[in-house]
Design a protein around this nucleic acid. Sequence first.
DNA 1: ACATGACCTG
DNA 2: CAGGTCATGT
Length: 884
Amino acid sequence: MPDHDSTTLLTRQTKRRRVDIGVKRTVGSPIFTRARETLFDSMNQSHGSNQDGDCSLVSHGHSGTNSDGEKSNVLRKLLKRANSYEDTIMPFPGATIISQLLKNNIGKNGGSDSGFQGSGALSSGGSEIQAEDACSNSSRDQDSPSDCLSPGPPLPPSSSSSSFGRPPPPSNLNSHAPPQPLCLSSFDLDRLSDEHLRAKRARVENIIRGMSHSPLVRSNNSTSSNDHRGDGNSHNTSSHNHIRSNCPSSLLSSPGSRGGVVGVGEVYRENKRKQRLPQQQHSFTQLVCSRQEQRQEERRQLKLQLEDMQKQLRQLQEKFYQIYDSETEEEEENGESGEVDRGGEREEDGNLSEDSIRSDGLEERHRDRGRHSHDELSELDPGLFLDRARALLREQALLDGDIEEDVDGREEEEDRNGERVMKRRGEAAGRRGGGRQLAETLKQELNCAVSQVVDTVVKGFSSPKQAVSHHLGCHSNTPAAPSSSSNSSSSCPPPFGPLPSLTPDSRFGSGALALTLNGDGSPTPNYHSSNQRLHCFGDVIVPSPLDSFSGLSGRLSGVHTPNDQTEALPLVVRKNGGGGGGENIHPSLPPPPPPPHHPSLHPSPLTASLGFSPPSFRHPFPLPLMGYPFQSPLGSHGGGAGYPPGAKDHHRSSPDSMDMTRETVSLRTKMAALGGGHLSHHHHRQSSPSQHGPEGLSLSLIKSECGDLQDIADISPYSGSTIQEGLSPNHLKKAKLMFFYTRYPSSNMLKMYFSDVKFNRCITSQLIKWFSNFREFYYIQMEKFARQAINEGVTAAEELSVGRDAELFRALNMHYNKANDFEVPDRFLEVAQVTLREFFNAIVAGKDADPSWKKAIYKVICKLDSEVPEVFKSPNCLQELLHD
DNA sequence: ACATGACCTG
DNA sequence: CAGGTCATGT
């Protein structure tokens, strides 16, 4: 050996002693190795991984969508649909309801309501188009361009951005940015009121915005959005684009106003198209037929629902009417004059264009007649509904808040909106100070009603959604009939419905070591989230793609293990047999539930009930895909597969999402996410969850299918994308969490639990490498703490215990569960304690003199692996896990 | 040959 | 955490 400094020498020597589990690595020539006598170096802290390094920027900053967003989205779709596709539905209930409501309000308020056009965010597809045009066209407005593009209006008062944490979506901006404070009578007064107004507006805007962000949108484009978000602004912009992209109807015609953005939009479209093509190829005539049928049914149901809701709304409206009617009339007279004054000013806002375009006609009418009856509903465009609704909300907000002060402020707003008429309302409101409470009450009621309606619609929709093809859903989809028979799942399990909750406890048995792992018990982990998001993609009617998928895949893998290994996978097998069955050396640790690995062998009814569908079911055509659960766009969502765009909610929240810096990975992931959705859907559909054929047959099929799947993935860029080709930060995180259960996962296991990844040698080895690194850190810590304990005078291993507050545990938790958003299973603590004691004993016994002294410990530890909860088989598991 | 894990290094 | 090397097992 060359003489290097002693340190290096030591390390080298140390190196020699290989300690493989189960196999004694010849420690090179004993001569060399023996140098290692003092293993202190083994402690090399150098290894201390600095995992901290992981900090990637991938912020999936998708608008945190909330249920509201979804609802709104659905509503939008419905409305849109009314226009474009299914004309048959023309008298769309929803539309009428809203329109009526709005009209009524308008009328009450003085019929000047036309002014509201709120922000494009809400705008329905149709309106958006107009909005776009407006932006581009609104040459007259100096501000208009800025409105479209930039969040903040140039003018000082334009604190719009300030009022909101982030800049509102372009369209919204318009409304916000009061380009110029109205220089009406009292300038100062205006300013004061202005602030209040802004605050209120901000609130309203937020609400609207929230509504505007629909999960679907996210899911669709989320991936791409991430990619695009280069600039800080992109956040809003991207969301906006998404919306547009979703609605084919809205041609992204935003030529002038948003330079770069436009390009982005186009990109999205392209992606969409690409995605579609493959789907279409796969589409089956059957599906088409069933789809249509479903649509009709869906329509009916929706209609019914809407009607109900309509009734409710009407009642509310009635109240509203009664209350304000008298006032409004009076106000109108007064207001009229005011309106005229401001007429010119309204242009200031870019929004004007939008509103003016679509609503002008209506508004004018309203103005003329003052407030009118709701009769005109028919005239309203569906696109307007949302705007109107928004306006209504805003109005209400205003009312409830500072009716008094706002008179001026309102005027401003109205002007911005381009509706002078609105003024009246403001005035009226001002007068009504007394009625404030009433207004509040009404507001609340209305909100509730609206939300209810939305919910109802969503619910109705949700089921259909699954069935609905991506195209349909996005574009003109007819609502898939909720009942649609085709999807057993679709109709019944409301996606939103309560999931079989896997509470952390259930998942990971807290108390008993042995039991903990059985967590599988929770049958179908909640895939709901994934489902919800996914439907958008699915072209075909897909009930719940991921759920079944993920669940199935896991099981399948277990069952078909041999089969599954198509290409590279087969590599690792070692662990299965040994680990699972292994007799536990340590009595203290009950043997982990062995069942997992070969579930297929013992297909129990239970499994079926749980939702495992035998592979056989799925394999109808798209089978190949089935092998891999596609990562939901969300995915990684947290999840799962890369946080795919969709899931973004979590992503943001979870610190880890940012971990990976490698863009390549993330990009790939994203790409995958985009493509991924549809295929999975296809499968799903076919696989009826409940029914099951003979499993035996399926095995071979599955195997072949898996192979096909991979092939397909390779071949078709888009379809292939469904399965991620790379590992995302989420996967890493997931792997770390899995480490709490298994220190020595087999390649098969990895394949099962990372079913959303397209496995190949690289991936497999990378995953294995990850775990290898995890182990490395784990053992280093163990040795370190064991020695530390010895140094501290601990004499008996029994004195060592690893609790959640132990230094050792904290170190480990910090490494594998940095965010500490995962409840580490007790089992892990047990294992850690055993490990620590093993090290302690070994060191105390002087075994560390043996180069391969760790080998024995490894052997022991590798048998302590426990089954990883089923939840981890879900591509979205991260989200699900972390949510809890 | 291939696959895997430990160990080391950057 | 990725790469590389080494040793080992199949």
